[in-house]
Amino acid sequence: MTKMITEKPITLIGGYLGAGKTTFINRLLNSGGLPSRTAVLVNDFGDINVDEQLIRSGSKSDQVIGLANGCVCCSIADDLTSALEVLKSSAIERVLLECSGVAEPHRARVQCHYPGYYPHASVVLVDALNHQQRCKDKYVGTLVAAQVQQADLIVISKSALNPDFCLQTLQPTIDADDQDAMEVVLGWGSDANHGHSIPTNLAPSFFTQTWQSRLPVSLADLTQRLEDLPGSVQRVKGLVATDAGIIEVQRVGTDTQLTPWTQPPHTAQLGLVIIASAADDLASIDWAS
């Protein structure tokens, strides 16, 4: 009998120490929203509430496995590949992998090509309170900046403590405190930004598109375009040059906010990131001007 080999997706949860990875994973574990047959591989058990999770799920197919940092050349049997090997033939259908705080997503991603798996998305948490300071750190500044650059989806944590925090990047960004944050993270696919679906049984999936205009648009036109967006668009975020100056656009669900950008214009990276739950809808947005 031949068995179809189904590859299991791995979602990487990265970000520097203190960015809120553990809090986020604990919320996932305790939200009840974690699909069954999900294995959670944590960098070290640390503060993960393993027992609570096992009691809650009551299911043997959900597993939380602790990993220690390791390099194959220094430990022969590194924890990660051993865990992946064990899970390969299990009933597990997907893996959430917490990266070490010093991991670069693109290096961690390499590991997700382990036979039987594929990298689903690199999610990176960014701490609104300390990120800017940390980017200047002489030891980890480069690393922290690289983590953000290599992310498919950025999750901002602790924004309540620093409401003015704004990450100047044209990457899909959500807030850890958003009601649907878990849903977005779990449904995120790394090649979603190519506007096509990926072969996965995961629902819902999210798709993203970046829109940039070289010429200023009129504010009225921009408002109209935002209003006309299809219902599957969950978020729009970014900065747009208009006839009324640079405008910051923030839209979650149907709640749209347009605010004049008061900071120096040279720090502004212009463009909008649009996140939708239906790829077709995203493809139908034709904003070419």
Binding site: I5, E85, V110, Y114, G116
Partner: peptide
């Protein structure tokens, strides 16, 4: 059959590196 492009295993060359090395070592 398990080995697909992108896995840091070049089955034609019999080469296992980085992530693919873990697969071989296991």
């Amino acid at each position: 059959a398990e080995i697909k492009p992108g896995m840091q295993i070049d089955i034609e060359r019999g080469w296992f590196f980085e992530g693919g090395l873990g697969y071989a070592i296991n």
